[in-house]
Simulated scan of single mutants.
Amino acid sequence: MSSTAVPALDKTFQILDLITDSSQPLTAAHIAKELGLPRSSTHNILQSLLSKHVIYKDPESRFYLGSYLMYWAGKYEQQQGVVQLFKDLIVQYPVLLQHTVTLSKLDLGEVVFLACHESPAPLGFTFRAGVRVPAVFSATGKAMLSTLSMDSIKSLYKDAFPTPMTSMGSRILPIWATELAVIQDSRVSLDDGQLRDGMYCLGTYIRNASGNAVAGMAVSFFCKESMSLNGLRSVRY
């Protein structure tokens, strides 16, 4: 396993890998000896993992994997399902191949990109997986935020919006709330140069079987292209 810049994190992964590979639960002493770790460090890490239910301890003080890992696995599987849906949609509608199309999810007050299909013409903005931007300035972020109550949105930002990324961004709550009301009616959001000057993004959200917004999808293009996007009207999210 490659090391990180955080020694404590390296030790945590070493412990989890050892417990995972073992055919039976392990004691703290065995873990420390097997990995050559100080007993004090091993104890502290095990206690932290226990508190989060990442591992469990049996009556004989032996450790094994906990149920919280199932939560991670379920979320990963759910996320991968959305990514596959994203890829299938692009193939289903060839008109999307001409543009930059992104898939993202809402993480508190930010949008995290999960996948991206790049257009033949670079937009000058990085949409690669893992990149985060303020949700209030992105098309997908606005779309997903529109499914929340205003009180929930205010709690994300504590009544203060992030610093605008361009001159098109606004930190005035009433103006943004008015825009959100329009998005709630249409399910379509617009980033008119708020992430990058001259770049427009049209977005919407993807709902699961329960009707909850689980991801957002957007088509990005240069402002001058906005008059030639009639083909996108046939796309159904």
Results as ranks from 00 to 15, higher is better:
Met1Leu: 09
Met1Gln: 12
Ser2Leu: 11
Thr4Phe: 07
Ala5Pro: 07
Pro7Ala: 09
Ala8Asp: 13
Leu9Asn: 04
Lys11Ala: 12
Thr12Val: 10
Thr12Phe: 06
Phe13Gly: 00
Phe13Val: 11
Ile15Lys: 00
Thr20Asp: 08
Ala29Gly: 00
Ala32Phe: 05
Ala32Ser: 10
Ala32Leu: 02
Lys33Ser: 13
Lys33Arg: 13
Glu34Asp: 14
Leu35His: 00
Arg39Asn: 06
Ser40Pro: 04
Ser41Lys: 11
His43Ile: 14
Ile45Cys: 01
His53Phe: 06
Lys57Gly: 09
Asp58Val: 00
Arg62Ala: 07
Tyr64Lys: 10
Ser67Arg: 12
Tyr68Met: 03
Tyr68Trp: 08
Tyr71Met: 05
Lys75Met: 07
Tyr76Cys: 09
Glu77Trp: 11
Gln79Lys: 09
Gly81Glu: 07
Val82His: 07
Gln84Cys: 06
Gln84Ser: 10
Phe86Gln: 04
Asp88Met: 09
Ile90Ala: 08
Val91Leu: 13
Val91Thr: 15
Pro94Lys: 05
Leu97Ser: 04
Leu97Glu: 15
Gln98Tyr: 06
His99Asn: 05
Thr102Leu: 03
Leu103Cys: 05
Leu103Val: 03
Leu106Ala: 11
Asp107Thr: 09
Gly109Asn: 12
Val111Asn: 03
Phe113Lys: 01
Leu114Ile: 00
His117Asp: 06
His117Lys: 12
Glu118Ala: 12
Pro120Leu: 13
Pro122Tyr: 06
Gly124Ser: 01
Phe127Asn: 05
Val131Thr: 07
Arg132Met: 08
Val133His: 03
Val136Glu: 01
Phe137Gly: 07
Gly141Glu: 05
Gly141Trp: 00
Gly141Asn: 01
Lys142Gly: 04
Lys142Ile: 09
Ala143Gln: 04
Ser146Arg: 04
Thr147Leu: 00
Thr147Glu: 13
Leu148Tyr: 05
Leu148Val: 05
Ser149Glu: 14
Met150Pro: 04
Asp151Ile: 14
Asp151Met: 13
Ser155Pro: 01
Leu156Val: 02
Pro162Ser: 04
Thr163Glu: 11
Pro164Asp: 09
Met165Lys: 11
Met168Ala: 14
Ile172His: 15
Pro174Val: 01
Glu179Asp: 13
Asp185Ser: 07
Arg187Thr: 06
Val188Tyr: 09
Ser189Gly: 03
Leu190Met: 10
Leu190Gly: 00
Asp192Asn: 12
Gln194Arg: 13
Gln194Lys: 10
Gly198Thr: 11
Gly198Lys: 06
Met199Val: 15
Tyr200Arg: 15
Tyr200His: 02
Cys201Gly: 15
Leu202Asp: 09
Gly203Gln: 03
Gly203Glu: 07
Gly203Cys: 06
Ile206Ala: 09
Arg207Trp: 10
Asn212Asp: 13
Asn212Phe: 07
Val214His: 04
Met217Val: 14
Val219Gln: 01
Val219Lys: 05
Ser220Trp: 04
Ser220Pro: 08
Cys223Pro: 02
Lys224Asp: 10
Ser228Gly: 02
Ser228Phe: 10
Ser228Tyr: 15
Val235Thr: 08
Tyr237Thr: 13
